[in-house]
């Protein structure tokens, strides 16, 4: 087991290096981080030459990469060109907010897709099955910024005007009030809904088909033959085996959730990391972009590692292959 974990850990290192390489060259090739200064007519030629030198843009790209890498490894992720702050500090200020949003939508996604997937699998090809499918695909097919704006119009603006209980349109806490946990939950509802509906369809469908597959297996037939109640068969035997492979899929989906968070945070003015990425991408503030990409990717790699290891614990066959 230890050998397996070490092997998996070692594999992660080139992956992380690869991520940093891909990200660095893409981001670096994107344009001129000095643009933010040059578009400013109040800067003189000397100003710009001085700034360029101060940031090391006069060196070739690969030199800049190793320069960046050497520092990144020891935990110095550099300073933002725009805010002059340490990238790690900036990420720390936003990461929690993004994780709150993502965590909540993740929980919502999971609850809805488990419920719908199980229902769908046990009622295959029934009208209700179609309805569930239709519902789960609804959110998946909707452009998220448009969906977000619609929700704001209906639940934050119209409901308020009609005197109905309404939801806040933007931010994490009320603009004028005191922050509280309860307010946080209210502010979470709309963005988390938008974000979670993206993945509901996928998980519902996946759970449905893996349930169908498991139900067809011999041990379920045996259980049925033993006269176990349908409920016990479904939940104790089939469900457990159907959900485990779902976890792998979910882990692979974390980057997609971040992608969704970028748009959602923008629409709902959520003070998260995705929005920060976009605000700094426009000006190619690459220490920040690199920091975010690297952090997110590391999270993904770690999650995958955890999933693989727990999988290996459950199913020893994997370790051997």
């Amino acid at each position: 087991m230890t050998r397996y974990i070490i092997k998996r850990l070692l594999i992660s290192i080139p992956v992380l290096l690869g991520i940093s390489l891909v990200a660095f060259f893409l981001v670096q090739a994107s344009g001129d981080p000095m643009a933010v200064y040059i578009s400013n007519p109040n800067l003189s030629a000397e100003d710009i030459a001085r700034l360029e030198k101060a940031y090391g843009f006069d060196k070739p790209v690969y030199v800049q990469y190793f320069y960046w890498l050497r520092k990144a490894i020891v935990g110095d992720w550099g300073q933002s060109f725009l805010t002059h702050q340490d990238v790690l500090l900036m990420i720390r200020q936003r990461l929690g907010n993004t994780l709150i949003l993502m965590g909540t939508s993740f929980a919502i996604t999971l609850i809805i897709s488990l419920a719908l997937g199980m229902y769908s699998a046990t009622h295959q090809y029934s009208p209700a099955d179609y309805l569930v499918t239709a519902f789960s695909f609804f959110g998946y097919s909707m452009p998220s910024f448009w969906f977000g704006l619609m929700l704001i119009i209906i639940f934050a603006v119209k409901f308020r005007e009609w005197g109905l209980p309404y939801l806040p349109a933007a931010g994490m806490y009320p603009i004028r009030g005191e922050p509280s946990f309860f307010q946080l939950i209210r502010h979470l509802i709309l963005p988390a809904t938008v974000l979670s509906l993206i993945s509901v369809a996928k998980y519902t469908r996946y759970l449905r088909s893996s349930m169908l597959e498991v139900i067809g297996q011999d041990y379920i037939r045996t259980a049925r033959a033993k006269g176990l109640s349908e409920r016990v068969i479904l939940w104790r035997h089939a469900f457990k085996n159907a959900v485990i492979p779902l976890l792998t899929i979910i882990m692979l989906d974390i980057p997609q959730l971040f992608s969704g968070a970028l748009i959602t945070e923008q629409v709902f003015a959520w003070p998260g990391m995705g929005r920060m990425y976009w605000e700094h991408a426009v000006w190619i503030d690459y220490p920040v972009l690199m920091g975010i990409i690297l952090l997110v990717s590391t999270l993904v790699v770690l999650c995958n590692l955890l999933a693989d290891i727990s999988y290996a614990i459950v199913d020893p066959r994997i370790r051997l292959s």
Partner: peptide, 22 residues
Amino acid sequence: MRFTDVMLSIPGIFLIIALSVF
């Protein structure tokens, strides 16, 4: 497969933004 892992780990929209700007 390592390259696939790399690409799978980076959120797509991050790369699309970078590519479009590039």
